[in-house]
Design a protein around this nucleic acid. Sequence first.
DNA 1: CTTGCAGCCTTACGCGACGTCAGGTTCAAG
DNA 2: CTTGAACCTGACGTCGCGTAAGGCTGCAAG
Lengths: 252, 252
Amino acid sequence: MHSSWKVGPLAQASGLTVRTLHHWDAIGLLSPSSRTAGGHREYTEGDLARLYQILALRSLGLSLETIATCLDSGVDPVRLIHDHLAKVQESVDVLQTLRTRLTTLLDALSAGRTPGTDALLDALRAIGSVAPQAEDALKDHLADEQIEVLRTRSASLGPALHYLLEVEWPELYRRADRLRTEGAPATDPRVRRVVGRMDELSALFTGGDQAISQGVRTAWRENPGAMSGTPAPASDEWSALADFLDEARRTR
Amino acid sequence: MHSSWKVGPLAQASGLTVRTLHHWDAIGLLSPSSRTAGGHREYTEGDLARLYQILALRSLGLSLETIATCLDSGVDPVRLIHDHLAKVQESVDVLQTLRTRLTTLLDALSAGRTPGTDALLDALRAIGSVAPQAEDALKDHLADEQIEVLRTRSASLGPALHYLLEVEWPELYRRADRLRTEGAPATDPRVRRVVGRMDELSALFTGGDQAISQGVRTAWRENPGAMSGTPAPASDEWSALADFLDEARRTR
DNA sequence: CTTGCAGCCTTACGCGACGTCAGGTTCAAG
DNA sequence: CTTGAACCTGACGTCGCGTAAGGCTGCAAG
């Protein structure tokens, strides 16, 4: 009646693999109480009880080492579960944030061919309408030329455009804001690098036209949500970052 | 003006470690365009552009291999992001489910010293009240004795009790239900093992008293939510599982 | 008793993205 | 030229096993 199990049947019964049971034996998590003369593992009923406890704790997402500690040395279960829950919650939060970013990005990508460019153009047009009335006609004309430049540039960049506009740009934005909130000065080499790369990207679109670059920057400041590809930050935070970047640009 | 960077300053500027840059070089993700005569890495501006692209894509949670493929061979960004989002969403769902289970478990654990035991006792009392009136007094008396047995047992089990009641028990419950919904017959050895272990746990509390064991099983059937430690399943699902377990017990 | 074959054994590499030495070489300042 | 900081390559560890490779055991049939 005191049945013993070999690895194969036990793996079958428990839904695990033989390799897993070998592994658990190797790390001392679950070692069979006895062996045959030839060295074959023999799991007893007591081993099975432990196996079920391991499965239960594993289903909570605990590491094998943690499980071993629990079963062998005894740990306060409340604190154990509490701490583990905190870690899980943290992972969830991180993934949720990532999911939001991916969703936003995917919306932008699938909404149009080059949504980032459209946002750029919209922003440029908005800038034009804010300009002094006396120069409206000229600015409109200039904007048309600028738009043409942007369209040509966009076409020549091809697929890389998506990454640049929808991925790298927001990344630069986030990096800059992180540095700012960490208290880095505008003269910090890391800040300068980020600003430099931003201007590089800008140059890719404007073809080096300073007027257009300035227009894009202004547009960005006026309408951050459409340009950054990320949820619009608080306006005061935003202008603080814009000031920060401008300062970095000046003191370069 | 054509600046070149060594690993140290570049790591400093980018927030990475030297080791990471070495690694990215080793796997061909980001190799410096040149080296000094002595073999020191020299990163050019072009390398920096690639570095920023890598950082951007990495911040989306993509694997280094995927990033390399994107940058070197060009992949449809929409599908890339879409597929990746699906994986992230799946991870979120899994973790959310786990979080819910952990929260429920933690509530149960921190509500009282031995909430599972209280639930057991409550269930036993409920059973008593359902019993035929003619035997009420006797059953009440019997219940008191039973309660005393359970209390003694709980005390002697110590911390392991929590695992048994709040972790292993629900795990057994889930395993049994999984087997049932997979269509396994009540005579399946895996089912028998689960039922056997359930009865072992039951025996731990009742001290082998069949009357108490039966009472606990009945209580469980009457009030599954309080006993299983998991969200109460649909009642029809529940009774189907109870029937399944009873059948497995009979045909053993 | 021997053969056969299924199932068991140990050993070891692989994954992913690096951290962390260890032991030796190169660079730039003084 | 010397010194010390920064650089180099190589290798092992992480975590939970998957996936062989090559050999041994155990049970049944001949």
